[in-house]
Simulated assay, not measured.
Amino acid sequence: MSEKLNNTLPALLICNTVTGLVNNKPTSLQIALGIETREKACIQNLYDFGVTCSYDEVLRFKTSAAVSTVAEEQNPSLRPITDANEGLIQAVADNFDANVSSQNGLKSTHALALLLTLNKRTLDITPGYNRTIDRISRDTMKTLIKSYVKIKNYQGPKRSNMPANFPRRCVLTLRMLAEKAILNARARNLDLQFLRDITLVNNLPEFGGYNTAIVRRQGQSMKPGSSVMYTPLIDMIPSDPDTMMAAMCEAQRLTY
């Protein structure tokens, strides 16, 4: 339509909209826009113009994502993270608090969310793992999604003292100290270069894209993306010792 639209976000939006109308199925961008707008009335207005998917499709995608997560949790062969042979696995737990105002009063949810992350050394993914989320049928949406985290009771004291011989101190090797000094100096130089280019270069990408462009120009290898696995919420008070014990045991079970 116009040379000004080449490689631009408006062109991407238009292409996704056209593709969705031709295939009669919502594209990933249309689903993302539908989730971003959130409000049903706004989603339906944009859907009438062919910009986003329908509100029913947003609900179906959320349910499909939940079904896919439960399947990964129950079947080790479907998990994106199975063991630490490809890199360090990190378990991240945090409070999940939600307050919903309704005509019947204030409804609140206080639970614990746990996710696992793995930064793989290679681009190879787990054999048999499917990164896509299967679109479930309307009949499947009516089925209750069952996911249960086995609760472990904490029997120890409320406040435990760290053993005196547990913390260890050692002097880092000269090679490691030199590597850290070089990395810190390079990071400071890149930060200053980014701040300088903000005032001199038009249409400068954000900080992540800026560093990615530098890595490509220097011919360095790209770091593989991290695999992330979301686990079911633990519907208990996050500060309860049993909740934390259950989260740690669940992380150990999923990565053992």
Rank of each mutant, 00 (worst) to 15 (best):
L190P: 00
L174I: 13
R188K: 08
D197G: 05
A181S: 14
L177K: 15
K180Y: 11
N203M: 03
L190W: 07
P167T: 03
P167R: 01
I214C: 09
V215T: 12
E206D: 13
L195K: 14
N202W: 10
R169I: 06
E206T: 04
L183D: 15
L177Y: 01
L172W: 08
R169M: 07
N203S: 09
N211V: 15
R196D: 12
G209R: 03
N184H: 06
L190K: 01
N202Y: 04
T173W: 05
R169G: 05
F194D: 00
L172R: 11
I182E: 15
V171T: 15
C170L: 05
R169W: 01
V215H: 05
N202E: 09
L204Y: 02
F194A: 01
G208K: 01
N211P: 01
L204V: 02
R186P: 01
M176P: 01
R216G: 06
A187G: 09
N211G: 10
L174Q: 13
Q193M: 11
V201I: 06
R169F: 12
P167I: 08
Q193P: 00
I214P: 05
A164I: 06
R216E: 15
A181Y: 03
L200H: 05
R216T: 10
F166T: 14
A164T: 07
N189K: 14
R188H: 14
L195I: 08
N189Q: 12
T199H: 03
D197Y: 05
K180M: 15
D197W: 03
E206I: 04
T212L: 09
N189C: 13
N211Y: 06
Q193H: 09
L177F: 02
L192F: 02
A187T: 11
L183Q: 14
